[in-house]
């Protein structure tokens, strides 16, 4: 999925835990998530901490989209 979008010229920030899988499948802008069970959250945190975590992950993703890269790169 990331592969097809990136090759169509649309930058994709891929939020995922399996960075190796994404890389091998053509992901370029990789944003590590907390867990496969809750990519953009963490039920062990308080609501406000979790919200901050999500903000941070989204801001990494936006940075990834706005950064020029030459090869698969991890943003965290």
């Amino acid at each position: 999925m990331a592969r097809e979008l990136e090759s169509a010229g649309i930058p994709v920030a891929h939020i995922c835990t399996m960075i190796n899988v994404s890389k091998s499948m053509g992901g370029n802008r990789l944003v590590p998530s907390r867990s496969v069970l809750h990519p953009t959250g963490d039920p062990d945190l308080t609501l406000s901490e979790e919200f901050k975590l999500r903000q941070k992950i989204v801001s990494n993703a936006l940075q990834a989209i706005q950064t020029e890269i030459k090869e698969p790169t991890v943003f965290e």
Partner: peptide
């Protein structure tokens, strides 16, 4: 006209 994507995976 979408310019960028955020993709989330489990």
């Amino acid at each position: 006209g979408v310019q960028a994507v955020i993709l989330t995976s489990t």
